[in-house]
């Protein structure tokens, strides 16, 4: 995973709540077996609407999405994160994120910056009044800067550390391989096993 310290890019105001993962990328795009190339599926139904924010040439080059509460609800599809990143987004700002989406984003290197809803409203107004305005997101000091506006954001310490260091979770866990093996020694014999059918 690439290290993330700061990112500066055009802010995109998405004035919608409950942006579920079926909106971020519909199931029909999930048939692929690759990990890249999902940008065409991003918000595909909404992009059919001329007035949708990403159809505005200025915002279409954006990389910092500012969305309403409960972003990423629904399905566990990590494709939602990949679609956002493949399109060019590096940060999503919202007042509330769905847990699985937030987890997936942290693994894939997309920053989910949680701010107060009041601050989302301020960012929306600012970005709508100044289309194309750059937003600077600083993970070291957990702040978002847009024009004169500076707002703090929350991200859990562990995810922040992993993003700052660009660390791969699996390698981190495999450092504790011995502890996993030891745990396995202590498991009861009746725990579920797939391969030993009809043990009666």
């Amino acid at each position: 995973m690439e290290k993330f310290t700061t990112h500066t890019g055009i802010g995109v105001p998405l004035r919608r709540s409950n942006v579920d993962t079926d909106q971020i990328i519909p199931a029909v795009y999930l048939k692929r077996v690759t990990r890249t190339g999902f940008e065409d599926g991003l918000f595909s139904a909404w992009r059919g609407d001329e007035s949708f924010v990403l159809n505005d040439a200025t915002y279409s080059r954006g990389s910092v999405l500012v969305a309403g509460p409960d972003f990423g609800t629904g399905s566990s599809r990590e494709h939602a994160v990949w679609a956002l990143m493949d399109y060019g987004f590096r940060v999503v700002i919202s007042s509330r994120f769905a847990d699985i989406f937030r987890g997936n984003a942290g693994k894939a290197g997309l920053l989910t910056a949680q701010v107060r809803q009041d601050d989302v409203e301020l960012l929306w107004k600012l970005l709508e009044n100044h289309p194309g305005l750059d937003v600077r997101v600083d993970l070291e000091d957990r702040t978002i800067t847009a024009g004169e506006l500076v707002v703090p954001f929350e991200v859990d310490d562990y995810t922040r550390w992993r993003l700052l260091e660009g660390l791969d979770d699996i390698s981190l866990t495999l450092r504790h391989d011995g502890e996993i093996a030891e745990f396995e020694q202590g498991r009861p014999s009746w725990k579920p096993s797939v391969q030993e059918a009809a043990r009666r």
Binding site: E78, I100, G103, N104, K107, D169, T173, D177
Partner: peptide, 20 residues
């Protein structure tokens, strides 16, 4: 728990998940 694909890979490789 429902998980994403990165976590699927993590569980395949380690049979564990780091969780808060």
């Amino acid at each position: 728990l429902g998980i994403g694909t990165s976590e699927v890979e993590h569980v395949l490789a380690t049979q564990t998940l780091p969780l808060t």
